[in-house]
Computed example of a mutant assay.
Amino acid sequence: MITVTVIGFDGGPLSDPARAALAEATLVVGGRRHLDAVGADIPPAATRLVLGALDGMFEEIARHEHVCVIASGDPGFFGIVRQLREYGLEISVLPAPSSVATAFAAIGLSWDDAIVVSAHGRELRPVANVCRAFPKVAVLTGPGTGAKELGAVLPDRTFVVAQRLGHPDQRIDTLSSHAAAHAEFADPHVLLCLDESRLTSERGWIAGFAGVPGRWALAESEFTHRASMITKSEIRALALAKLGPRPGRLVWDIGSGSGSVGVECARFGAAVLAVERDAESCDRIRANAATHDVTVEVVTADALSVLARLPQPDAVFVGGGGTDVIAACAETPATTVVVALAAIERVPETISILTKTGRTADGALLQSSRLSALPGDAHRFAATNPVFLLWGERR
């Protein structure tokens, strides 16, 4: 029977159980720097396997009875424990503090409210979108998905870059995201991405992202708006269902107005870019985002003048603008484009635009009647203006 012990290493002395496991090992697997660091505790007769990729590791493990795997920090936290278990091995784990915990400890900052994402071997875009949406994010980086690359695509953030944690040459650098885009860092490293304007000392009860908000399609009274110029809650409910906002996705809110759609998407954990040409409306969007404690990046401009320069969206909501704006949004790689229209004449052209860009078009005419009070404790249902909600989806 194969016994596999996974030892978390943080640069410090090994625990007695870890040293005892190594003393019995006939195979020790780990990165070169880990094997060098614990070399004095590895039996001379034991085989050492330098771990670059996982290729060949399991075949070598099958040839031994007592195996130790050395990994950074807590191997059960975005670590090798999952792969070993998936291969069917019975393992015991001796963890050290995770690299994320160590990085936050190095700057004396609590992290129970942090979002932790792994960029190792993954696309950069979803990771960047999480960093846009949340004020405190820890990123486990990889080649091509580190502080340099994230700094080049993110707005102003504070970066804390932790390199070679637990080693004598450990280095902690604090710099702006813009400065990080022009710097070099050792791979891999831990990146803490902080929006210091939104960091709070409020004590929560659940770690990280709290999940779907308890309410959505909020009443118009929960937003600042101008003369009822706001996407009504019934329209917002269906729009949210089609946009599918969630962590890792970027939603454009074009012709944002009060920003109600963008703010609600941000409440679901999505990154949001709101484009609105009216400066006073932009101030309202920022105020509404602050009221609901979310991040919405606001761009004050005519949509057609800036869309080509914005990060590519996963979904788009068009609440204002002509068919030329709709066409420009439909040309993006977004999987879903949702358009709200008041005029029936614009419906056929919008359907045509969505279809010509490879999307399956669908839609609904939404008209609701709301309970309204009358004198003498009587009530009636008062009709709201009808809205055509169209959407085009690309599978």
Rank of each mutant, 00 (worst) to 15 (best):
G214H: 15
K242D: 10
E280R: 12
I254T: 10
I230V: 04
V299Y: 11
E280H: 15
V298F: 02
P213L: 01
V251A: 01
A270V: 10
Q312D: 12
A219E: 13
T295R: 14
G255D: 14
V263E: 04
E276D: 10
G322L: 06
V298W: 08
T295L: 11
V263W: 02
D253G: 12
W252S: 03
G257L: 07
V318E: 03
G322A: 14
R246K: 13
R226I: 15
C282N: 12
F223E: 01
E222R: 12
T231R: 00
S256C: 09
R286F: 03
R249T: 02
P313C: 01
D278L: 09
G259W: 03
H292W: 13
H225S: 15
D278W: 08
R249F: 06
F268M: 06
A274L: 07
A308M: 11
L273R: 06
T295N: 07
E220Q: 15
F317N: 04
E280G: 12
S221D: 13
P213C: 06
R236D: 02
I285G: 00
G262E: 09
K242M: 12
A207H: 05
V272P: 04
A279H: 09
L310C: 01
G244R: 05
A279Q: 15
D278I: 05
N288W: 03
T300Q: 11
G211Y: 07
A266R: 03
L307E: 06
R286H: 08
D253P: 06
E280K: 11
A227H: 14
V299G: 00
E220M: 12
V316T: 04
W216H: 14
G321S: 13
A290W: 03
L218C: 01
A270S: 12
G319E: 07
V325M: 04
D302H: 10
E220H: 06
S260A: 13
E297W: 12
V316S: 00
G204N: 11
F209V: 00
T300S: 03
I235M: 00
S228W: 11
I235V: 15
E297S: 14
I206Y: 07
E280C: 10
G259H: 05
L250A: 00
T200F: 11
P311Y: 10
A270D: 14
A328S: 06
V316W: 10
P313S: 06
R284Q: 10
W252I: 03
L199N: 07
